[in-house]
Design a protein around this nucleic acid. Structure first.
Length: 483
RNA sequence: GGGCCUUUAGCUCAAUGGUAGAGCUGCGGACUUUUAAUCCGUAGGUUGUGGGUUCGAGCCCCACAGGGCCCA
C-alpha cells in the first residue's frame, strides 16, 4: 500500500491527477465490443475511441504493453500501448504508474490484434482512479468469509457475484411487471411498528425518541396491506425488507425481502394462480422454466398439484390421519418413522412436524400443500367445506417451502377470537405468538371484502433460480464484527 | 444449544514437537502481439487472542473470539 500511495503522490505532484473528475470517455467497453465485433483477426481501423475500465490483467513487454480492462458487470476489453504510437514517455509512465486494480482512461484506435483479440491501440492514456489496495488474486476463489466481508472485492474478481446482482434486479423487475400488468398497486407501509403481527417470529426492538415509545421492526407486511384493502385498494402489494430476530445460517437471514400480495374478491385458488404466474414471469426473465436443482429437475411450466395435507401425511405413514386423530396416535406415528418431536407439543403441531419431516422434502415438482389445520395460520379463513381446517396453502418446490397463500380471514369477530388466543399464548411465554392488534381489528370491523393473499420470500425464490445460498443472494449480509 | 472442522504473507494454501515455505500479488530488471504472458532478481510474518505443558509449540492442552458444515 505504501508504494501505491507513493505513486499516487507522485502522479499528483507531477500535475497528472490520480483521481480526475472527468475523462473524455466516448464508448463503453460493451459498445466497442458490439460496434467492432466484425473485425477480422489483425484488421486495424482508424476509428478513435476513449474507453475506461479497471485494469484486471497486465502484460508489459518491452516496447508493447497489453492490459485487460474490466467495466461494470463483467465486460472486458484489451488495450495495447505501443512505443510507436504512444511515445516513450507515455509508455514508461504506464509501466511505472499503473497497477492491477487501477481505473484508467485510454484513447486510441480500435483494432484486432494479431491473435484476433479486439483491442484499443492507445495514442494516449490517463489515470482515472488510482487503487491503493491490491486486488485479490483472480485465479483462486476467495474464501467464503472474505467474499462476504468484502463484497466489493468479490464483485471485482468473481463473475458469479456480479451475475447475482443482475439476476436479483431482474427478478424484482419481473415480479413488479407481472403485478403491474394485472392492476396491482405497490405501496409502502411502516417498518417501525408498535405491535408486531402478521407472522410468528421474534421481532427486533427499538425505541422512538419522539414518542418515548418502544417500537418493533416489522416481521411481516400483512396487517397494513389488509388495512389498505379495507380502504378500497383492491389489488395491492408490498415488496420490502422484514426483520426477524432469529438464527443466521445458510437459509436464514435476520433481514430479508418479502413480497405480499392481496387480491379483493379472490380466494386461495385465484391467489395460487397468481403465485404460479409470478414464478413463470421470473423464470422467463432470468432463464428457463426447467430448473436443475440438487434434488432433481423441476418443471415450472407443468401443472401445479394441489395436495391436501391430511392425505399427504396419511400416505406417508400408511395410516389414515385426520384432524381428529388423537395426539398419542400421531406421536406413535412420529416415533415409528423416526421423526423426533417434543412430546409436549399439542396435537396439530405434532401433525405439522410429520408433514414437514415426512412429506415436504419429497415434493420435487411445484405443489400446493393445502387444507391445513387451523393452528397453522391464524390469519386464514375457516375452510368452506371441511370443518376444523382452513383455506391456506404452502407452496413446495424442490422440497422447500417457497411461499404461502390463503383465503384471508375477514370476519372481525372470528379474527378477534383467533388473535386473542394468540395473545394468550404470547402472555404464556410463546415468543413467536402474535400480539393483539386492536387497530387491525378496528379496520376489519369497517368491513373487508373477501380476498386472497400470498406471501413469498424473494431470497428463497432467487436461491431456487440460482442454486446459491442466502448469503450470496444478499449483497451485504450480516456477519459478526471482525475480531 | 450440541458435535465436527477451521483461522499461517495482500489473496489461496503448505510446513514429523526442532531454522515458518510455495504460487499468485507487490517491488526492480529484460522482452513490439500477449491472453492467469514468459524469464531473471527481490521484498513480504507478533502463525486469530490469552494462558499452559515442554530444553524447544504454527503443531499438544485449556479458555476466548471469528468462520464453515452437520444435528436439535
Amino acid at each position: 500500500m505504501r508504494i501505491r500511495r507513493d505513486k499516487r503522490d507522485r502522479l499528483i505532484a507531477s500535475g497528472r491527477p490520480a483521481y480526475p473528475v472527468w475523462v473524455d470517455r466516448t464508448h463503453s467497453l460493451a459498445q466497442v465490443r458490439e460496434q467492432w465485433a466484425h473485425l477480422e483477426t489483425g484488421e486495424e481501423t482508424q476509428d478513435r475511441v476513449g474507453v475506461t475500465g479497471r485494469v484486471v490483467f497486465i502484460r508489459n513487454t518491452g516496447k508493447l504493453a497489453f492490459a485487460t480492462l474490466q467495466e461494470g458487470i463483467g465486460t472486458r476489453l484489451q488495450v495495447m500501448l505501443s512505443l510507436a504510437e504512444v511515445g516513450e514517455d507515455a509508455l514508461a509512465a504506464w509501466k511505472s504508474d499503473v497497477d492491477l486494480g487501477d481505473h484508467v482512461f485510454v484513447e486510441g484506435r480500435v483494432i484486432s490484434s494479431r491473435r484476433g483479440e479486439l483491442s484499443v491501440m492507445a495514442s494516449s492514456w490517463q489515470m482515472a482512479s488510482k487503487a491503493l489496495r491490491p486486488m485479490p488474486v483472480l485465479h483462486k476463489d476467495m474464501s467464503e468469509e472474505s467474499r462476504v466481508r468484502q463484497r466489493y472485492a468479490d464483485l471485482i474478481v468473481r463473475q458469479e457475484a456480479r451475475d447475482m446482482v443482475r439476476t436479483k434486479a431482474q427478478v424484482l423487475g419481473a415480479i413488479r411487471g407481472v403485478l403491474a400488468e394485472q392492476g396491482y398497486l405497490e405501496i409502502e407501509t411502516p417498518i417501525l411498528q408498535l405491535i408486531h403481527g402478521g407472522a410468528a417470529a421474534r421481532p427486533f426492538h427499538t425505541h422512538m425518541n419522539a414518542f418515548d415509545q418502544q417500537m418493533v421492526l416489522r416481521i411481516a407486511l400483512e396487517l397494513n396491506l389488509k388495512k389498505a384493502v379495507v380502504g378500497g385498494v383492491d389489488r395491492v402489494y408490498e415488496m420490502g425488507r422484514i426483520f426477524r430476530n432469529e438464527g443466521v445460517d445458510a437459509t436464514h437471514s435476520p433481514e430479508f425481502t418479502m413480497l405480499e400480495v392481496y387480491q379483493a374478491w379472490g380466494d386461495q385458488t385465484t391467489i395460487g394462480a397468481l403465485m404460479r404466474e409470478l414464478y413463470l414471469g421470473v423464470a422467463d426473465a432470468v432463464g428457463s422454466r426447467v430448473l436443475e436443482t440438487p434434488r432433481g429437475s423441476v418443471d415450472l411450466g407443468g401443472e401445479w398439484r394441489w395436495l391436501p395435507v391430511y392425505d399427504a401425511v396419511s400416505e406417508a405413514v400408511g395410516e389414515t390421519v385426520t384432524i381428529d386423530t388423537p395426539r398419542e396416535t400421531l406421536l406413535a406415528y412420529a416415533a415409528k418413522h423416526g421423526v423426533e418431536v417434543d412430546p409436549g407439543l399439542e396435537k396439530d403441531k405434532v401433525f405439522l412436524e410429520l408433514l414437514s419431516e415426512l412429506v415436504e422434502p419429497g415434493l420435487l415438482q411445484p405443489t400446493f400443500l393445502c387444507d391445513y389445520p387451523a393452528i397453522a395460520q391464524p390469519l386464514a379463513r375457516p375452510h368452506r367445506s371441511a370443518p376444523g381446517l382452513i383455506e391456506a396453502w404452502d407452496l413446495i418446490i424442490a422440497g422447500v417451502e417457497r411461499g404461502t397463500g390463503f383465503s384471508e380471514l375477514v370476519d372481525p369477530i372470528i379474527q378477534r377470537e383467533v388473535l386473542t388466543e394468540q395473545s394468550l399464548r404470547a402472555a404464556g411465554g410463546d415468543p413467536e405468538a402474535m400480539q393483539l392488534d386492536e387497530d387491525f381489528l378496528r379496520a376489519l370491523e369497517y368491513g373487508c371484502p373477501p380476498m386472497g393473499g400470498l406471501g413469498l420470500g424473494i431470497d428463497r425464490m432467487i436461491m431456487l433460480f440460482t442454486d446459491a445460498n442466502i448469503r450470496e443472494t444478499i449483497l451485504f449480509p450480516h456477519l459478526k464484527p471482525e475480531a
